[in-house]
Every structure is written in structure tokens, then in C-alpha cells.
């Protein structure tokens, strides 16, 4: 059905944007960044700030939010991850603590009431006989373009190849002159920027509230487990799998069960093939 095709694509797109950033950080820096959901929430609030305080047009606010979060990502890496690199447990705790502090700060600054950020594309659109919000189509297009660009970057651009090499072997990378500390900063920045982009496009179709980062973070984590930690291709495949499964279940069974799908998928993966679809 055309509806499942389009709605599933929109769901998959938002999951893919979140999951790819998360898996990139793990694959390259070997960090399970539990502050990824905080990047998402802060991205939405940054956009809200630019719109509400400066009256920025939605498209500009999105770009500004992405830029801000890219900087935040690099800062988080520099001060909360790099110094603890030798102890993975400490990094985990550090990013978890950051996410809690971020949520509390958002709550204190903005209150618990839901906020609204504007759509870049307003209004319904009819495609293939299906009624869908225009922003949903924008989301699909953006996800394809951004993830495609990322893939090209990692395989063709010099810095991209340096990132890829670091993900293969950080010591080997240093031996050929790749400054891995720069690589880690870039990867964190890209990951945070992708989370912010996802929030800025999905947020207007949902709500903005301090705890909004939790569900996307859990979904991203589920996608990454099913797809294989560290595999970008795996994240894309798993995002499609979970996005479409949820949509199909919503359609054919009930919206009551759709949210359970990702939990079931994680369970099955851990039992049957713990390394995930494309993991090692």
C-alpha cells in the first residue's frame, strides 16, 4: 500500500538520522554516547530559541541549531569524553550524567510545558494518492541526502577517509599521520549535528519538551543494536526495518502494539545474532 510505503519511509528517515550519528561515534571513537538524546533535545530547543528570540525563519533556525549543536558535540568530546578515554565505563557515566544535567537545565530554563517549533514546509500534500504532511516528505528527502553525503564523505574525502581509517584502527591511523583527536572531535560534531537536524525537522511534527530526547535515544539504540554497533550500513538497514515494521503493525494490527516492535526486535537480535545484522 502506498500509505505504508510513505509513512514507513518517514518513520525510517527519522530513526536513520539518529542512529547513524550514534553508530558513527561508536564505530570511530568506540564511545557509547548516552548524551545523544540530549543533543536531540537541545537541537530542538536551539531552534525554538532562534525562532522565538530572533524571529528567524524556520529554515535558518534549523541551520543555526545544527551549527550550535555541532560546536556542542566537539566541546562534549573535548571536555567530557577525551580525558576519560582510557576508561570506557567512565565515559559511559560521564555522557549519562551530561544527559541528565541537560534535561534538568532545559526544564529549569523553559519549564515543563510543551513548546512548538515551526514547520519548514506547512500543509498537506498528496503523493501517490496518499495524504501526508509536506514536512514528512522533506524529512525523507533530507535523510537520503544527508546520509548519502555522509557516505560519500567517508569514502571519498580525505578527512572522511581519515575517519574511516580511525574507525578501523586508531593506532594505525596515528602512525600514518592522522590526527585522531581531530577525527574524534569531527565525528562527535557530525553526530550531534545529525541529531539536531533530526529534532529540527521532526520536532515541529511532534512537541518540544525537556524529556523529548529519551524516546529517540532509545529508538536509536535499538536500531543500532539490530543493525550492528559501528556499522553505518547496518543502521540504515535496521532503521528501515524498524520504521516499516512499526508502520505495518500500526496499519494491520493496532497502533497500540507499534511501539513494542523495536523492543521485540532488540530481544530477538540479542538472542539470535547478538552482533546485529552487519556487526562483527
Amino acid at each position: 500500500m502506498a500509505e505504508i510505503l510513505l509513512y514507513g519511509a518517514a518513520s525510517s528517515a527519522s530513526y536513520a538520522l539518529m542512529a547513524v550519528g550514534f553508530t558513527l561515534v561508536f564505530g570511530v571513537a568506540r564511545v557509547l554516547n548516552l548524551a545523544h538524546g540530549a543533543f536531540y533535545a537541545c537541537g530542538a530547543y536551539a531552534m525554538y530559541g532562534f525562532c522565538a528570540a530572533f524571529g528567524a525563519a524556520p529554515a535558518i533556525a534549523v541551520l543555526a541549531a545544527i551549527a550550535v549543536l555541532a560546536a556542542v558535540g566537539a566541546i562534549v568530546n573535548r571536555f567530557f569524553v577525551e580525558p576519560l578515554r582510557a576508561r570506557p565505563m567512565a565515559v559511559l557515566m560521564s555522557t549519562l550524567a551530561l544527559s541528565i544535567v541537560a534535561e534538568q537545565t532545559l526544564l529549569i530554563t523553559f519549564g515543563s510545558q510543551s513548546r512548538n517549533i515551526p514547520l519548514i514546509l506547512d500543509g498537506p500534500v498528496s503523493l501517490l494518492g496518499v495524504r501526508i504532511g509536506a514536512q514528512g516528505l522533506l524529512l525523507i528527502a533530507v535523510a537520503i541526502v544527508v546520509i548519502g553525503a555522509l557516505w560519500l564523505f567517508l569514502h571519498k574525502a580525505k578527512l572522511g577517509k581519515a575517519i574511516y581509517a580511525t574507525s578501523q584502527d586508531p593506532v594505525g591511523a596515528q602512525l600514518v599521520g592522522i590526527r585522531t583527536s581531530t577525527v574524534f572531535a569531527v565525528v562527535f560534531a557530525v553526530s550531534a549535528a545529525m541529531a539536531a537536524l533530526s529534532a529540527a525537522i521532526v520536532g515541529p511534527m511532534q512537541t518540544v519538551s525537556p524529556e523529548m530526547g529519551l524516546m529517540p535515544m532509545i529508538k536509536a539504540f535499538s536500531v543500532v543494536i539490530v543493525g550492528g554497533l559501528g556499522s553505518i550500513g547496518g543502521s540504515i538497514a535496521a532503521a528501515l526495518l524498524l520504521g516499516y515494521s512499526e508502520t505495518i503493525v500500526s496499519y494491520l494490527v493496532s497502533t497500540e502494539w507499534a511501539q513494542i516492535v523495536s523492543l521485540v526486535a532488540v530481544f530477538v537480535t540479542l538472542v539470535v545474532r547478538p552482533s546485529g545484522l552487519f556487526g562483527k
Binding site: Y164, A165, Q168, D169, V171, G172, L175
Partner: peptide, 13 residues
């Protein structure tokens, strides 16, 4: 240039 113990190649490339 250092060619290290364990070689540290990029295995999938």
C-alpha cells in the same frame, strides 16, 4: 615512520 608490533593495518580496506 613506525611499522608496529601487530601491524595495525586497516583490515576491511
Amino acid at each position: 615512520c613506525h611499522c608496529p608490533e601487530g601491524r595495525r593495518l586497516f583490515p576491511d580496506l
